[in-house]
Design a protein around this nucleic acid. Structure first.
Lengths: 97, 97
DNA sequence: ATCGTATATCGTAGATATACGATTAATAAT
DNA sequence: ATTATTAATCGTATATCTACGATATACGAT
């Protein structure tokens, strides 16, 4: 399998990782918000959550690590959006449970 | 809303709780196994997982707390099965992400 | 060059999670 | 009554998570 290609399904561990990343209310809220606004910078997420900037940054890192979101550095900002590919696989996987 | 009735959807926190419960490979394996065998006693799960009985028992407790499984005491055994109602709601909720 | 803005990272305290062995509790079998 | 079986709970060690403030980094604007 080449680097660029991606698996159709998720391993047990991958699914668990994604679930774990979604296992916190703040991170669910971030996902919901990104769904709503399509894309945004970190500061906007800090504004809607009752959490410190550093804490939000940590949550974003966790979501990124699980492949649920993408972050693109744009000058001093970082623009975040959902990673639709991972979400799609996650949904397919959950459907089969 | 009466006690017996159940909500159609899940709150942010409920969804996070369910995801959290699924956020461990062993617990995903338990769910998979229960899907496969429909129902079983704790000891069978202990047999298929490389974990101590007490650890498996803890994982089962976590899944039960999240409402993902049901456990019925039957003499000295406990018979576990999936809680289809919660799973259904979870799937619906994930689909909407 | 300096300042301001946006965000990531560091350090840290306290809470949870995860694993295990030992123990307890409940029942079934002898 | 004693013993065996099954599973939950307790106690505990270690690891991870979650939150924060402080600091570092990167860049744009002045």
């Amino acid at each position: 399998m080449k680097k660029q290609e991606s698996k159709i399904s998720l391993s047990n561990n991958e699914l668990a990782s994604i679930c774990k990343a979604l296992g916190h209310p703040a991170r669910i809220m971030i996902i919901d918000y990104l769904k709503e606004v399509d894309e945004c910078i970190c500061g906007q997420i800090v504004d809607i959550l009752p959490l410190a900037q550093s804490t939000v940054s940590q949550h974003l890192k966790a979501l990124k690590k699980a492949g649920l979101i993408k972050g693109e550095v744009d000058g001093p900002r970082t623009c975040y959006c959902l990673n639709e590919e991972t979400l799609k696989k996650f949904k397919q996987c959950v459907e089969k449970i």
